[in-house]
Amino acid sequence: MGEVVQVAAPWVLLAALLLGMAALGVAALDGALAARAACRPASVGAQHPLVETARLLRQRRRTTVAADTLLRHVAVGGFAVAPLLMVAVVPLGEWVLADASVGVVWFNAVDVLVWVLVWLAGWGPNAAWSLTGGYRFLAQAMAYELPLMFALTAPAVAAGSLRVGDVAGGQQGLPYVVWMPVAFLVYCVGVLAFSVRGPLSPAGGPVISSGVLAELSGVDRLLVLAGRAGLLVAGAAFAVPLFLGGGSGPLLPGWLWVLVKTALLTAALVVVRRRLPDVRPERFLALGWTVLLPAALLQLLVVSVVVVVRS
């Protein structure tokens, strides 16, 4: 695969369009799976995102007493922007929006931004369920963030670069997922967690009346829902250059391979998400600190040793 070329800024519109369509796809797949579970025609469920979009576009926005409207707007707007910031460093074949020299760290910084957004979305409405959701997310956040950080580090160490394009180019013939599967799995757990939906969804979920979503209606709600799906897609898209060999593959052009791999991983994550019950933060804390973190560190050790031996 050749060098990555940074494209001009207006292409961000195309990226936004792609992300939006992928987010609709996530919701459609989720709806179809739900419909199938209820023994109803999957096609009806697959229409769910369009119907829901129409409904929320038509619905009025409401506020609560003594709400911090400014912070709520920041959170809602941030949800729409964060996935875009993530995919900005993901090369689509040979093109990338921002060929940042520290793309991997950049991605990490944006996924930490999600902490801020979720908490602000919980804080803004000044209501009990929202606030509880925001706090519960932060309670769990560190337990997925640290393992995720080390999982991100492993491919960067192997490629000897923090530039996403270099990491993708560093796995000619052998995608990193083959010899760092643990890092890949830990990374996927992280994606499930920062996309703020089950099974790691302490900020939402039916048991706290959808938490940070509880007081949002109309366009506000639509943006947060779309942002949530967008985060899942962006997480899957970032895994492609990091673990899945980027645009390399037979027959098809690179950009198409990136899209195909992203779509497949996204679909897998949606299916996993449906099959697992919600995990409570205190349960996940134990898992994160005692299993995921040591596993990620061990993986990093293995990768480092391999890199040292190979050079």
């Binding site: 009346s209 979503l213 509880a214 709600r221």
Partner: peptide
Amino acid sequence: MAERGWRAASSPAD
């Protein structure tokens, strides 16, 4: 509701 494809709301805002 299931027949019509309607959904139960999780909160009044929804």
